[in-house]
Design a protein around this nucleic acid. Structure first.
Lengths: 327, 327
DNA sequence: TTGAAAGCGCTAACAT
DNA sequence: ATGTTAGCGCTTTCAA
C-alpha cells in the first residue's frame, strides 16, 4: 500500500480510504490511485486490515452437514446475495453435533467475523454464551423461535409436519405412518414428526406407525425403513417421509412390493428436491424455502452492515405443500 | 496474549509458542499457560497471527457448484481429513465460470491461505499466472493432467466415459446414446462424453446419438432429454447419462414410455449417488472417488505443511464401474 | 479532502 | 527452554 501511495503521490491513509470508501476521496485522486493499484497489481492484505479494524470481511456460517442439499441451497442463496460486497463465507460443518458446533463457533470467532449464522435454535450453553456475547449480528436459521438470540430466518417445521398429516387425511388415509432418520440429532426432522403426530391426534387418528434409521437419510435407508413399516403395520396406507431422498427409496420399494401409489399407499416427502417432480408417480412433498432462507439472510446482513437498525427479528418464510401424484 | 502471559508469569513469546507448538515448551510451563488461557477464556486473534507470519490457517477451495453432491462430498472428505489441524476452508463457488474463478482466486489470495485447491485443470490465463506465482501448494482436482501446476488429485474422466461405452457394448448394445448437461462449461462432463465417443468409434460403432440440456443436470431435464432422444433415434438401446440425477429422470421416463430396462434400454449413470442402488432396476453407474479426493488432498496438504518434500505430483484415484440391474 | 502518527495483537529472529 | 525486540500491513484518530 505504501508503494501504491508513493506511485500515486499520496499518503497511505488516502489509498486505504480510496479502497474502502471511494466516495470519501476526490475523483482525480481516486483515478490516480486506481491507476497505481492496477499498475502494481496491488491486492490488499485482508489480515492486516482485519487486525487494524478489529473486524473482518467474513461471515461465519455453521451448517449440520456439508452434503445435505438443503443447506447447500441456503449457502448458495446467501453467497449469491452477498456477491459484490466482498464478504467471504467461512463455512463450518457441525455434523449435527452440539459440541462440534460449540467448538466451531469458538474458532470462527477467532476470525472476528462481521456476522455469524447458525442452523437451528437449540445450542449448548457454551455456544449460547458465545453467541450472546459476540457483538455482531447473529442469525439462526431453518427454524422459528419466539425469542431468537438476535434474528431468526426460517419456517415452522412443526406446522409443516402437521400440514402433511392433514393432507394425507384429506386424501382418505385411514392409517398414518412416518419414516424418519437422525431424529435424535436433527431437531428439525424431530419437529416435523411432532407436528405430524399432533395433527394426527387432533383428527382423532391413532399415533402414526413409525420406522427409523439411525443414520443420515438415504434412498436405500428409506426403502428399508418403509419395508419394515409395511411388515410391522400392513394396514398403513399413508406415509410421511422425513426427506425426499427417503421417499424416493420408498417409491421404489412400493413398486417392488406391488403396492400401487397412491391407491394402496400415499406418500409424502419433504424438500421438493429436484427429482420429486420427475418420479413416477410424481412426489407430493413439502417445499421449504431453502434458497430463500440464504437470500433473506444476505439481505438482512447487508442492511445491518450499513448500519440500519433491525426492526424485525423473526422472519417466517413459510413452506408450501406441493401436491402431486403420490397422494 | 499479554494478559495470559502476565497471569502465567511468562513472556508473550512463550505463550505464543505454547499455543502453536506445544512441544517446544516445557510441560510445567505449558500447564501454567493452559490454565491461564482457560481462566481468561483467551482466544487468539488469528488475523494478528496471520499478519505476523504472512500466512493464515486457511485453505482456499474453489468448486464450480455449491449444490453439486460430488463437490460437497469432496469438501466433506477434505474437512474431515483436516479436522484437528486448525485449518479453515475458505470455499469459493465459481459457478462453472472461468472469469469468476479468476476473481475468486484473487480474493482468496488476499487471505494469504496456506494452500489453494481448484477444480479442474483448465483455467484462464490470469488464474494460471496467480496460481503459478502463489508460493503455496496448489492442488487441482477431479481431473488428471500430465503437467499439473503443482499437484493434481483425480481420475481420468475420459477413461470413465470409455469404460461405460465398452460395458454397454459388452452387454449387447447395438446403438449408443448420450444424454448430457452443461457440456459447454463442465469440462469433466465433456471429457466423459469424448471418452464415450472415442470408445464407441474404436469398437466400430456409429457416433452416439445425443441429447443435451443447457442447464445444470436435473432429473426432470434427464427425463426430457431422454424423451427427445427416443423420439429422434428410436433405435437407441443403450444410453450413458452425464450424471445419476439425469439417469434417475431417464428411468422414470422409460417406465412411462414402457421401454423395459435393461431389455429395451440399457442405462448407465455417473456418480453412484446414494439413490443409485435403490432404484428399480438398480442403476449401473461410474463411481468417482468423490470423498477420497478430498481425503487425499487433506493428507497431501498435511504433509506439505509439515515440510515434507513432494515426491509425487499426479494422484490418479481411479473410478469404478458399478454394474447393477439397469444394464 | 488529505496527511501524520500511533497502534491493532500477534510471530520470529536472535540472544540468553 | 525462555525472553527481548522489532516488525507484519494495514486502519483510524486527529490535525491541517
Amino acid at each position: 500500500m505504501a508503494d501504491v501511495a508513493r506511485l500515486a503521490g499520496v499518503s497511505p491513509a488516502t489509498v486505504s480510504r480510496a479502497l474502502r470508501e471511494p466516495h470519501a476521496v476526490s475523483p482525480p485522486m481516486r483515478a490516480r490511485i486506481d491507476a497505481a493499484v492496477d499498475r502494481l497489481s496491488y491486492r490488499r492484505n485482508l489480515m492486516a486490515g482485519g487486525l487494524a479494524s478489529a473486524r473482518s470481511m467474513t461471515i461465519g456460517v455453521i451448517i449440520p452437514s456439508m452434503t445435505n442439499a438443503f443447506f447447500a441451497a441456503t449457502i448458495d442463496g446467501m453467497e449469491a446475495g452477498l456477491a459484490g460486497t466482498g464478504y467471504q463465507l467461512l463455512i463450518g460443518n457441525s455434523r449435527y453435533g452440539e459440541d462440534t458446533e460449540e467448538r466451531l463457533i469458538a474458532s470462527l470467532l477467532a476470525w472476528s467475523p462481521a456476522a455469524i449464522v447458525v442452523t437451528g435454535c437449540r445450542h449448548s450453553r457454551g455456544a449460547l454464551r458465545m453467541l450472546l456475547d459476540a457483538k455482531i449480528p447473529v442469525v439462526e436459521m431453518w427454524e422459528l423461535s419466539d425469542r431468537p438470540i438476535d434474528t431468526v430466518v426460517g419456517f415452522s417445521q412443526h406446522a409443516a409436519g402437521a400440514a402433511a398429516a392433514r393432507h394425507l387425511i384429506d386424501r382418505g388415509a385411514t392409517r398414518l405412518g412416518f419414516v424418519g432418520a437422525l431424529l435424535g440429532s436433527d431437531y428439525r426432522a424431530g419437529d416435523r414428526r411432532a407436528g405430524f403426530r399432533a395433527a394426527a391426534a387432533a383428527a382423532g387418528f391413532a399415533p402414526p406407525a413409525e420406522a427409523h434409521m439411525a443414520e443420515q437419510a438415504t434412498a436405500v435407508g428409506g426403502a428399508k425403513a418403509l419395508s419394515q413399516l409395511m411388515d410391522a403395520h400392513p394396514d398403513v396406507d399413508a406415509v410421511l417421509c422425513s426427506n425426499d431422498v427417503m421417499a424416493l427409496g420408498a417409491i421404489f420399494e412400493a413398486q417392488r412390493r406391488g403396492w400401487p401409489i397412491p391407491h394402496r399407499l400415499k406418500l409424502c416427502g419433504f424438500g421438493d428436491m429436484d427429482f420429486a417432480a420427475a418420479t413416477e408417480p410424481a412426489l407430493t412433498t413439502l417445499r421449504p424455502p431453502r434458497r430463500a432462507i440464504g437470500a433473506r439472510i444476505a439481505e438482512i446482513l447487508r442492511e445491518r452492515f450499513e448500519g440500519t437498525q433491525a426492526t424485525q427479528t423473526v422472519f417466517d418464510l413459510g413452506f408450501e405443500l406441493v401436491v402431486r401424484g403420490s397422494t
